[in-house]
Design a protein around this nucleic acid. Sequence first.
DNA 1: CGGTCAATACCACGATCGTGGTATTAATCG
DNA 2: CGATTAATACCACGATCGTGGTATTGACCG
Lengths: 209, 209
Amino acid sequence: MSNRPPIRVFSVDDHPLLREGIAALINNQPDMELVAEAANGAEAIQVFKQHLPDVTLLDLRLPDMSGIDILIAIRSEFPEARIIMLTTFEGDVEIQRALQAGARGYLLKNMPPSELLDVIRQVHAGKKRIPLEIASQLLEHMSDEVLTEREVEVLREVAGGNRNREIAARLFISEETVKVHIKHIMEKLGASDRTQAVAIGLRRGIIQL
Amino acid sequence: MSNRPPIRVFSVDDHPLLREGIAALINNQPDMELVAEAANGAEAIQVFKQHLPDVTLLDLRLPDMSGIDILIAIRSEFPEARIIMLTTFEGDVEIQRALQAGARGYLLKNMPPSELLDVIRQVHAGKKRIPLEIASQLLEHMSDEVLTEREVEVLREVAGGNRNREIAARLFISEETVKVHIKHIMEKLGASDRTQAVAIGLRRGIIQL
DNA sequence: CGGTCAATACCACGATCGTGGTATTAATCG
DNA sequence: CGATTAATACCACGATCGTGGTATTGACCG
């Protein structure tokens, strides 16, 4: 069981210090090898094609684009790509979108390194691996209704401090329609008013500031 | 200029991978030495007393307490402690509070390692060092009025989706007083309604979710 | 081809919010 | 000791919001 080629790992993150930590960790494993790094989305996609790594560690927040978009971009060309999301953030919606887009694992940066290594090996072996902590996050909101795209758009406008009338003007719809959307948003999120809807939307990763 | 003792560095962060990266970076410098690490506040304070490091790298968000509280706790006993805040976050209020509490430097985790090394050396030499990117953040809101403690409290309640009447009940004051506070909050933050006030408060680090 | 859902739109009403004042008390500061 | 500031409180009014309905259109699904 010894002479298998090492797992070729690719790390994408805009924090140099974190990349450094990952590099040290990976290269200390006899069965792994860090073959490339990238600090933004454009670079990530290009370098992926160049190296075709076995496993990719992908940050969710990068300076130029969302990690999810990178995930989608890579998997549209390489559906077999084994990608693990690695992030500080734990909004259930982000997790769900990542998994739907085909992520094989989802890790928080504050988890112990052993967990990361474990997930890398499992994912390389073709499995999916979601830590319990994350999975329970997901289950918590499993039954919740999902906001439509339009509703998210409206919620974003609300977060910007716009009045219903302003939102209507900005989205080219009637004020009454805005109200309907907001009503649905509050129902789905369990919020008692628009302000709480924004707070919940932020906490769950539905909108960003 | 050669035989000075190395700068003794202490790193406090709850992300093991990041600590790993810092460790690798520091220990690669001939003039530095990582003498200890901690992953939470209680540990940080205890380990600090034990090692009395030359320079401390302190994360702003830790599982058990705020980095600022740790900063204050350490400096109340060791006013000479040279502490650099190292964080992902850039709300101007957090920065200001850290500097007021006596931080000698403030760095973002996505800055290049050379910057970190530079700041460590400068701070060890007794200087303060705030990168331009951060300083400009501060200047941006220099002239802004600062929320009082009570106002922050009220803003927190607003973010929780409470109505004025509910906030009044929770804080044991009249609804009219709540309104006055909210009016002041909106004026100070430049918000057009309570929802935007919450969004701005979150963005600027005045409140957390 | 019906069923469901998302998005659009309008109406009406009561609740809540935001704004304009004025005023008192306690604390802090120079 | 005056000056300032924060926190408290009340009033009144118009603006905005949230809720209850009802309805039409187009898209997607089985």
